[in-house]
Nucleic acid binder design. Sequence first.
DNA 1: CCAAAAGTGTTTCGTATACACCCATGT
DNA 2: ACATGGGTGTATACGAAACACTTTTGG
Lengths: 245, 245
Amino acid sequence: MKTRFNPHISVDCVVFGFDLNELKILLINRDSVEDVKPDKNKIKLPGSLIIRFEELHQSAHRVLQKYTGLDNIYLKQFGIFDSPGRLSDEEDVTWLKNQTNVEIQRVITVAYYSLIRLDDSKTTKLSESFNAKWYSATEVPDLMFDHNKILEEGIKTLRNELISQPIGFNLLPEKFTLNQLQQLYEVVLGVKMDNRNFRKRAISLKYIEPLNEWQKGLSNKPAKLHSFNRDEYEKFINKNTLFII
Amino acid sequence: MKTRFNPHISVDCVVFGFDLNELKILLINRDSVEDVKPDKNKIKLPGSLIIRFEELHQSAHRVLQKYTGLDNIYLKQFGIFDSPGRLSDEEDVTWLKNQTNVEIQRVITVAYYSLIRLDDSKTTKLSESFNAKWYSATEVPDLMFDHNKILEEGIKTLRNELISQPIGFNLLPEKFTLNQLQQLYEVVLGVKMDNRNFRKRAISLKYIEPLNEWQKGLSNKPAKLHSFNRDEYEKFINKNTLFII
DNA sequence: CCAAAAGTGTTTCGTATACACCCATGT
DNA sequence: ACATGGGTGTATACGAAACACTTTTGG
């Protein structure tokens, strides 16, 4: 029963989306694939066994491509889940075996998180064309295998990296307002921030570049648009080293 | 040819040692194991294929135990090296196969770094009892496989984590002086620091606890000893969130 | 008394924080 | 004119950085 899959190693993706309002997570419903007892968890993270000789990041990109149709997405490895008992549920293993046509023994999974800017078109297209559906990050159901644990670690990682690396811009439109940026931080970190101080800080950062463009078509005062300037960020980071002895 | 090893996944350890003066790295000489062409790299990181059903961190601890005789060592996963071509050298693969009695196809390795306080006894004991030897971090030879790359990533990780997490104390004696702490930072980060400002900073941190003990047996002024207080650190970190928008 | 490393204080500057009201737009 | 979200300034406090000499110990 030799297939193109490597039956020892998989990737799973915690896919974050931000619609300028809420943090969302992309989950796959396995219902459509096969009959399952109604009381079982049928929902999982997007993932796949790796293909022989495929690099892990390629596997992760392949998974994202399959479920979102998107390429060129921010994707970062954040952990390995290797507990020998992590695929303990027999029914789940049977399902996986049928899916992949591979005899499953022990599977180690490498976890990635990825960041997607959501506009309405993407949100609806996804949930129609695939078995993928966006869930609010605050209302995640029980998932298969150890996927709730992976998801939790993914959220921790996102929070950590949001406050130490310029990754948040991957969740915003190319041209964003400072209040959208603040909203992102508040939602992901679960805190409220002082608006005046937040913008003072943001405006002082050269890598957050003010554009000569404003929002359009709103029924209130349009906000100035900004963009992230990676070159300026590189200069900045070389001068600043945070320090906890 | 079924053995207890899982022939798909290995661990490799970048083992850092600090002797209060210099950063060292533990490497294994494969000379003693088998004849090798004299012009080949014979030196590698300590590592091993994982054993079936063993967790990865157990594998890493097993490797450290084997080569250092030490248990209870700080050990942290920092990366995965999965390039399909990373075991390209045929002779190296043959060697690995003979070592493990396992048919090798593609091996993904999970990299750990670990931190060891070196006193003289450890330094000498190791290099005698095992094939392990401490090398200065600034004078590392060519290594087998992709181990130079892994080592490089390990050093980057160490630097990053040293300035953002309280891991440096694992490289110092339980009771250390502030100047030893400064020396550690200077050596690992490759910078010079202002002594007065460094100690002011250190003294202001409650989790660096001054003891009522001083160095002994020196021919110069003995320094006050300090220890790391993890409880105080937990309090500290909950109040401080570093921030790069 | 000498060599070697430990230890100490002040000023200056920049950044974090706290806090409340007016402005611009479309309907 | 109103509803909605955008945008602004000041005073205080704290920590970072720059900088050079005195003290203690054993030999």
